[in-house]
Design a protein around this nucleic acid. Structure first.
Length: 669
DNA sequence: ATCTGTAGCGCC
DNA sequence: AAAGGGCGCTACAGAT
């Protein structure tokens, strides 16, 4: 049953709905423990677009409230004292924030579906998909496109009511599944965190246009300068490089010009080959040898020719100009003068991502990725606090390493952290290389840089599932040496080896990776059924391996076209699962910690009436930002540090996770 | 002209 | 048997 609440009754006469008063709606809604909520808005920007209607209700009764004539504040207390059910709450929350309405609790059907299917990309999570899946009803979502032009027409009212009608039933079904899979704590965390993320998006981050303009100009000039040098080299050596020179007289630039588009790898590869650079590399996905000129290949060959380093420099400036250049002015909100990006709350690892593709037809503006802004000062310093404000930037020190130490409980790792001081990479080096065992870490850092570098690369690679081969490739050392380092690493940290082994076995057996026993977040292996089928073929009752050996010895076609690819596929998938089992719990637990820290901060701001006074401009995996007036900055720095460390304590019970805040005018450490 | 896939590279 | 995780944006290249 649809009820319309409006102060312009004469405009609404359809029999499909009844008209009722604000008081009527409140009388009913106050009797509910949980209320489904949705909004229809003029657009996507809470700072410039108005709410057209607010819908509240449940499966029985839906109230469509005409916000152009009814004061939304009449519903503030109701919304702030009930459990609110929403689909993709982050969107509506920002519009509620605009009206200073902060719900008490949220259950987000979209996030719940994401929690239930983390790791599996092809599960549809739109409201339409969920209504169909859980209620077996098909909604007509095409109406969404006419809301802007039609306003509250009859069909828009019907559509708007449908958006809240089914949420309770979806919730009920999801809760059963969440319980079955042990994911109640995960969704609880994310239902709380959605406030934080909505708040961060709402606040946005200030970009100083004057500074940014200066940076853009400098980058452009540098890029042009390097490009000229590249071109000049080719043109100065016309006999050597004639295939790269355009023989047509260029009437605008006087003289010949190069044919090379320096942004095209395809065009630069032949040049690099001519210079004597080895551009061949094995493709990671396909295993096929291909030609590539990325930095990983070029850097070690930088001495072959001066053009190699020039080209690397060019690519660097090109990246700055294209990705972090003048396009950023379009990201600045006309009303707030700040950059309000979009975050996706639950990726496969439980991490956030940032950014959004634009779509002019749908009126969606592009948003920047605020998590990969170059970390050099000249770029980050353009992101500032507003005048009279301060930024507080706080990150966890060694978050993932500490999480790993706490999860693996390797006794040597624990000892290192408990003593609390020294250089981690030197410590690893002292464990890998017997000749360094007795030396103080300071001395290793100072006098054994090469070995320390190997230890650093090895530790990083191994913690993400790399092996001796990866170590060898990364550090340009022999395969044997790589294997040696790999073995030495696990010999030095047997607890780590044991932990990795158990994690791998669990994932291969269960088909999902559980990150920790605090949030219980899980990521499901999308190809697990396929893997199991393969496993059964190889290790089931048939004597697969006898046949395999026989056919292999005969070099038969059957071996080459059937057996060998099958075995390769099986071990590839097994390796994929195993690496996931190592990496996701570390990344995902770290993400959980940062999320919980945000929840604590938001709670503090809410309880101390500091929302919209103390802003949260950004979050970058292990780093949280606050922005506030100077007079309370040092107080807020302590709050931020405490919240982050308190969140750390929940997940890291053996080795504490530290956070160090920095009060600053710019985004820096 | 517009779409899609890929290479490359920015961050943690 | 394979052999370093997660993400998003920009450019090019090829297809339609």
């Amino acid at each position: 049953m649809i009820n319309l609440v409006t102060n312009q009754k004469s405009a609404f006469t359809d029999e499909m709905y009844s008209i009722c008063t604000v008081q009527d709606s409140l009388d009913y809604l106050y009797s509910l423990e949980s209320i489904a909520l949705d909004t229809e808005t003029e657009g996507f920007d809470p700072h410039t677009d108005a709410i057209i209607s607010l819908q509240l209700g449940n499966n029985d009764i839906q109230y469509v409230i005409d916000i152009s004539t009814v004061d939304i504040q009449l519903y503030k207390e109701l919304i702030e004292t009930r459990l609110i059910l929403m689909q993709n709450a982050k969107f509506d929350l920002k519009f509620l924030f605009k009206h200073n309405i902060i719900p008490k609790d949220i259950y987000d059907t979209f996030l719940a579906e994401r929690v239930l299917s983390t790791g599996i990309d092809n599960i549809r999570k739109s409201l339409g998909a969920l209504v169909f899946k859980y209620c077996n009803v098909s909604l007509d979502k095409s109406i969404v496109n006419v809301i802007g032009t039609e306003g509250l027409s009859t069909r828009v009212i019907q559509y708007a009511a449908d958006d809240v009608k089914y949420l309770h039933q979806i919730q009920k079904e999801q809760l059963i599944k969440l319980k079955e899979l042990g994911l109640q704590k995960t969704i609880s965390l994310d239902n709380k965190y959605v406030f934080v993320l909505a708040y961060i998006e709402y606040c946005g981050m200030y970009l100083n246009s004057t500074k940014w303009k200066a940076k853009c100009l400098e980058d452009k000039q540098n890029m042009q300068n390097i490009k000229n040098q590249l071109d000049k080299y080719i043109l100065d050596n016309p006999t050597d490089y004639k295939e790269f020179i355009d023989n047509q007289y260029n009437m605008f630039e006087e003289g010949f010009s190069t044919k090379i588009n320096w942004n095209s790898e395809k065009q630069v590869i032949p040049l690099m080959e001519k210079l004597g650079v080895n551009v061949e590399i094995k493709d990671k996905k396909t295993g096929i040898i291909k030609k590539s000129i990325d930095q990983k290949i070029l850097r070690p060959q930088i001495n072959i020719h001066s053009l190699v380093s020039l080209y690397i420099k060019y690519k660097g400036y090109q990246k700055e100009v294209s990705t972090y250049g003048e396009n950023w002015f379009e990201y600045i909100n006309s009303k707030t003068k700040r950059i309000h990006t979009n975050y996706t709350q639950i990726m496969n690892t439980g991490r956030l991502s940032s950014g959004q593709k634009g779509n002019k037809k749908k009126g969606i503006s592009q948003k920047p990725n605020m998590q990969n802004v170059p970390s050099e000062d000249r770029t980050r310093n353009c992101f500032t606090a507003m005048p009279k404000n301060k930024l507080i930037v706080c990150d966890y020190s060694g978050q993932e390493q500490i999480v790993l130490a706490n999860k693996s409980l390797d006794k040597d790792l624990l000892k290192f952290y408990k003593k609390g001081l020294g250089d981690m990479h030197s410590f690893v080096a002292s464990k890998i290389f017997p000749e360094l065992a007795e030396l103080p870490l300071d001395e290793i850092k100072k006098n054994h840089k090469e070995k320390r570098q190997i230890a650093k690369g090895a530790g990083f690679a191994i913690n993400y599932g790399g092996t001796g081969i990866t170590i060898a490739e990364n550090l340009s050392i022999s395969l044997e040496k790589g294997e040696e380092v790999y073995k030495a690493y696990f010999k030095a940290f047997p607890g780590l080896a044991n932990y990795f082994k158990k994690e791998k076995e669990k994932a291969v057996k269960l088909g999902y990776v559980q990150f920790n026993e605090i949030s219980y977040r899980k990521s499901f292996i999308p190809f697990f059924e396929e893997f199991k089928t393969l496993h059964n073929e190889l290790y089931g009752t048939d004597n697969f391996w006898d046949i395999y050996k026989l056919e292999k010895s005969k070099h038969s076609d059957y071996f080459k076209t059937e057996l060998s690819p099958k075995v390769r596929k099986y071990f590839k998938k097994k390796g994929d699962i195993e690496r996931t089992s190592l990496n996701y719990p570390i990344q995902g637990t770290s993400a959980d910690i940062t999320k919980l820290a945000g929840i604590y901060v938001f709670k503090y701001l809410k309880e101390n009436n500091l929302l919209f006074k103390v802003l949260m401009p950004n979050v970058v995996h292990d780093e949280l930002h606050l922005e506030c007036s100077e007079d309370i900055a040092s107080e807020m720095a302590v709050v931020l540090k405490d919240c982050m460390e308190k969140a750390g304590e929940k997940f890291c019970k053996t080795i504490a996770l530290k956070a160090d805040p920095c009060i600053t005018d710019y985004w820096t450490h």
